[in-house]
Amino acid sequence: MIQASPAKITIRALRVFHGQEESLRGISLDIPANQVLGIIGPSGAGKTTFLRALNRLNDLVPDMHAEGQILLDGKDIYHPACDVVALRKRVGMLFALPVALPMSIYENVVYGPRLSGVRKKTHLDEVVERSLKAAFLWDEVKDRLRMSGLRLSGGQQQRLCLARVLAMEELEVILLDEPCSGLDPISTSKIEDALTILKERYTIILVTNNTKQAARVADETAFFLMGDMVEYGLTEKIFTVPDDKRTNDYVTGRFG
């Protein structure tokens, strides 16, 4: 169960400041490997900030800084010696709005491997097929891999983005930031199906505004509220008998 495997990511007293404002007020959490952690909470709770702290994407925002510790496999990712570029290859991210890069479907998928210097055509072809299949997109695009990724529908673009993340060979953790917020139910269910398979290989952290999605996909769920983590536990427990009244109110739809 939870404590059986050592934590993939260990977070200790993580505080994130955006200017004067404290967006995360001391989060401590052990994220086990090979399962889906759902993060739920109303908007402004700090879910996205939390996610973006894990691959240091917050670094790009001026006057944003983090305190505390985030250990990935026991190594502090905020340590000055940590290679951010290498970190982001291990910790992939899927955004709320699909970001197909302005290039062909094929080039979108091999973007990561190309950055790492992979040149061999046969190898890249394999990566494309494997990744697109894992993202449940292969059948829809296999005949038009040279088409611009921007011409796919929103749902397809999001799966393309997932494939692009999966194409990275160093990948260990997948962060998803409300990946289905703009998608139709069919694309949503395809992504959810993909996640339940992918967790066998990766550690997945899913931020979602859709509590039902967390209930469907997540093994464990954390409830965030105004920069605090109110409660964390097995998904069934969070959704049925939560310890905290605020959690109960949120999951039953009484606020948020």
Binding site: L57, L60, V85, A86, F95, V99, Y111, L115, C161, M168
Partner: peptide
């Protein structure tokens, strides 16, 4: 961000 999140410099 999309590119950087994929480990681009």
């Amino acid at each position: 961000e999309g590119a950087l999140a994929l480990g681009a410099t």
